[in-house]
């Protein structure tokens, strides 16, 4: 069964339609890459999944549970959104780490706040805290940052910041981890280390949706690729289908710009 189902999602900002009838599904443990030129709606789609934008129409389902249905007012309630967001993690282009916290604190903060809301938090405070810290350290270790846990974001390189941001998103164990151009703010050298980490997650069968301009990476890591243009899905398929045998002229035109270097 598909872990993520998106059906007929549409979104407009004023008179501009940025998403038109977007439908796709994603299997558990698979990686979906969204490619396309700037302004094609990739980022908006990702923001809709994370409830940072509210679609005007369509349905979003995770594990068969309807998280959003434009026609069902029950699913549009503001109070429920917070819980629904936790199905998704989002890694931003500009990292958005909290500058006043160390790498470790960045990873721990949200989890601690969630635990605090549970009734038995007070009684088991120390135990819970220790557990969260252990998990956070393990995640940072996995990201290759075990010697950076006590550094503040401004003391880290862009690539290190992005890896902390990935650890922060993973700390809440989302069903689906989304990346919004995770390497676009990095120079080529630092891009490699972040892509390596994402590749590692793909190998561990982390379900991911990745918006990227790194075509070679998308081809290597994805099981499914969607090419978007002007708010529509123009092409959808395996990396081989999309990259080797694109059916639309527009896709060929877009891809040629990358293959020409």
């Amino acid at each position: 069964m598909a872990i993520l189902e998106v059906q007929h999602v549409s979104k407009s900002f004023g008179d501009t339609e940025v998403l038109k009838d977007i439908s796709f599904s994603l299997e558990k443990g698979k990686v979906l890459s969204l490619i396309g030129s700037s302004g094609s709606g990739k980022t908006t789609l990702l923001r809709c999944l994370n409830f940072l934008e509210r679609p005007d129409g369509g349905v979003i389902r995770v594990n068969g549970e309807t998280l959003f249905d434009a026609d069902d007012p029950e699913t549009r309630q503001e109070s429920e959104i917070r819980k629904k967001r936790l199905h998704f993690g989002l890694v931003f282009q500009s990292f958005n780490l909290f500058p006043q916290y160390t790498a470790l604190q960045n990873v721990m903060l949200a989890k601690e706040l969630l635990e605090k809301e549970k009734p038995d938090y007070k009684a088991r405070k120390k135990e819970i805290h220790a557990q969260i810290e252990k998990e956070a350290r393990a995640l940072l270790d996995q990201m290759g940052l075990s010697d950076r846990v006590d550094n503040y974001p401004h003391q880290l390189s862009g690539g290190q910041c992005q890896r902390v941001a990935i650890a922060r998103a993973l700390a809440l164990k989302p069903d689906i981890l989304c990346f919004d151009e995770p390497t676009s703010a990095l120079d080529p050298e630092l891009t490699g280390e972040v892509l390596k980490v994402i590749k590692g997650l793909a190998d561990q069968e982390t379900t991911m949706v990745i918006v990227t301009h790194e075509m070679a990476f998308a081809r290597d890591v994805s099981s499914q690729v969607i090419f978007m243009d002007e708010g529509c899905i123009l092409e959808k398929g395996t990396p081989e289908q999309v990259f080797e045998h694109p059916s639309k002229e527009r896709t060929k035109q877009f891809l040629s710009r990358y293959t020409q270097g």
Binding site: N50, R85, A110
Partner: peptide
């Protein structure tokens, strides 16, 4: 936005 997607 980072806070929101972390469920805060």
């Amino acid at each position: 936005e980072a806070g929101l997607v972390l469920g805060m």
